[in-house]
Simulated assay, not measured.
Amino acid sequence: MIQTIYEHYGLRPNEFMPVGKFEGFQYRDILYTIINVKQMEQDELNELYQMSQFLMGQGDRHVATFMPNLNGEMITETETEKFIICRCLAEEKNPNFSPGHELAVFHQKGRLFPYEVEKANRLGQWKSMWEKRLDQMEQFWYGRLRALPNQEMEKRFLETFPYYLGLTENAIQYLVDTEIDDLPRSVDAATICHHRFGQKTWGEDYVYKLPADWVFDHPSRDIAEYIREQYLLTYAVDERHMHQFLSEYEKVNPLSSFSWRLLYARLLFPVHYFEVIEGYYSVQDERQKQKYYEKLEGVLAHSSHYEAFLKRFYQSVGISTSRYHIPELTWIH
C-alpha cells in the first residue's frame, strides 16, 4: 500500500496508524485517512464530497476533504484496490471538547446543505429499513429452526429472537405513531448525520470528521446512537454524563417532542442485538465467532437492564411526557 500511495499521490508514509475504523498516516501537520470505497456507488461519493466541501465552506476546520490523486481524480483504482484519501489538519483534541455542543453546531451547519441528497439520504426510511432487516432475520431464524442446530450460539439465537422481534415491532409502531400524531418543527429538518455516532467517531487524540461516516437524516439519529453507545459500554446509564451531553446540545438546538419521540423509537430498535447475530454468521474464523458469542451473552444478560433503561428514559433526562404529550410504553417492566 505504501508504494501504491506513492505512485498515485506522491506521498510516502513512514507508518500507518488507525484513524477510527480506517487506516491512515500523518505527514507533517496533515492527517491522511485511507477509505476503501469498493462497496460505495459513485453518486454517493459525489454527495459526500459535496457535503465535505460545504462544511469546509461553513468554517468547520476539522472536516476531512477528498484529496485528488496525481491524475486529478478523487478515486484511485488498482487491480486489487479502490479507495479515496481524505485529509484534514492533525489537530489535537482540546481537553474541554464538548461532544454535545460540537454535534449541535455540526447539525446546525449541516441543516443548511443546499443540494438534494439521494444515495446518502436516510430521512423517512427508518421504518422500511427496520422492517427489511427484521424480515431477513426472521426468515433466517425459521431456516435455522428447521435445521435443529446444536451449537450454543445458534441455540441462544433461536431462543431469544422472538423477544427481539417483539421489541423491533414495538419500535416500528412507536415510530409510525410519532409520524401520525406529532408534527415536525423547524429543528426537525434533515441534516448531515453519521451512520453510528459515538464517543470515538471524531477521534480520540486528534479531531477529524470523515465523510465516509455520514448520512443525511434527522438529527435525533446521532443523539440516540451516542446515548445507546454510552449505555452499552457498561450496561448502565451515567446520568450526569447524559444530562451534560443533552444540555450542551440543546443550548444550540432545542429538541421538539417529535425529536424526543424519534430518539426514543431509535433506542427501542435493538440494533446491538441485530449486529451481534449478523456479525456471528458473517465470519468464518472461530475466534471471531467466539467474540460474537461473548457479546451476545452480554446483551442477553442485561436485557432486563435495557428495559429498565428504556422505562426510565424520559424521566432520567427530565422530560415531562404529559407536557409534551409523549406516549409511554406500558409493557416495559
Rank of each mutant, 00 (worst) to 15 (best):
R156P: 02
K311Q: 10
R28M: 13
F245N: 04
T191C: 10
E41H: 10
P327A: 13
K251S: 11
I85E: 07
E152M: 07
F216T: 00
H243E: 08
D182S: 11
H272A: 11
Y264T: 06
A236C: 10
L268R: 05
V283G: 14
Q151R: 12
W141R: 14
Q42C: 02
K295L: 07
Y231N: 03
P18T: 07
Q173L: 13
G198K: 13
M51Y: 01
F258W: 10
V317R: 08
F54Q: 09
S186F: 09
S98N: 09
K200N: 14
A308K: 15
W130G: 12
K155D: 05
A265F: 02
D135V: 06
E229Q: 13
T65M: 00
L268I: 07
D205V: 10
S220C: 12
V19H: 03
E102Q: 06
K251R: 15
H243K: 11
L165T: 09
A212S: 15
H101R: 04
R122V: 00
E81H: 05
F245G: 04
E248K: 14
F66P: 03
N14G: 15
T178R: 12
P327D: 06
F22H: 14
D217T: 12
K291S: 11
Y293S: 10
Q3W: 05
T330P: 07
K93T: 12
Y208H: 09
R146S: 05
W214G: 01
I2P: 04
Y163W: 15
T76G: 08
F83I: 07
D222A: 04
F113N: 00
Q58C: 04
E73M: 02
